[in-house]
Amino acid sequence: MLRWKYSRPLLVLFVSLLALAPLLGSNPLSQPGFQQTMAVAFIWGGLALTYDLLFGFTGLLSFGHALYFATGVYVTCILINHEVVVWWLAALISIAVSAILALLVGAASLRTTGITFAMVTLAFGEAGHVILQRNFFNLTGGENGIALNADLIPEFWISVANTKFIYWAALAALIFTYVVIWWVTESSAGRVFAALRDNELRVQVLGLNTQRFKLLSFVISAALAALLGAVMLIAAGSAAPRFADAGVTISLLLMVVLGGAVTRWGAVIGGIFYSVATTRMQDLTQQDAFKTIPKWIGGPIAEPAFVLGLLFIFVVMFAPGGLSGAYYRLRLRAITKKSQ
């Protein structure tokens, strides 16, 4: 098989190390600053994975995925701030709201396929973005968003010294997302998703309700995105319209394509890499050495979108399958060589 026999034990070891790192003496992960960076990166990794379920596994190119992430952020924040329910119940309710929203939007937009579906989901996503910016009933705080009321959540979610709890929460959310998507894609429904991607007509001929399976994939990925949104709320401390921007979905697409679709770990690595790269590149361009580069070339490089965009075009044109695709090609070559 293409899987290396040590990959699973090594993965378990590596993840346990990540989980324990904040407790072990002095290392980068014992510093709150880096814990925060990694917590955000884990959330993006998880989000990229939920997008992979749609785009990679089911073949649905959605441009409105940010809507469900933002639903998780906003609904949780509103429920906590207005003291409707306790924080963890707020998160659970936001997941349910997101799933119902996805059910409605999905039912309408899945009447179209392919590229039209992409446009339609984009329109719905942008509508959500606009609504959040409008501050209806004084709920969403308009363009500034809303700050999470720190008095209404337990103490271990706040203060810099407690960043490790946010780190663990993000890691746990990522692992949970990974396990659910692993389970879904390996289940018989997951086989149908893949079949829908490869040849929808054949699935129809087999007598399966294709709409219902697509909708299932759409709703599962939306619910998981809302869960990650709730964690993001705690990590960011506020809900802002930028979480609903179409740019979020486009970043997710970049993460999945760079990391490689349909391999699960590819999307996660892509998301973590993308998130860390964008934050680190901003630090890099603040340095004096960078300012000596002439502005006509330094200006664009200072924008993370420039390098990542070029990398993205390169991967799409010349290296389909991204990072994980390249890995499996190498594995395949090694295995065939051995067997000869």
Binding site: I250, L254, G298, A302, E303, P304, A305, F306, G309
Partner: peptide
């Protein structure tokens, strides 16, 4: 990708 790169170049 083109949209991202063009936006970044003009922004820069």
């Amino acid at each position: 990708g083109v949209a991202l790169v063009v936006g970044a170049v003009l922004g820069g």
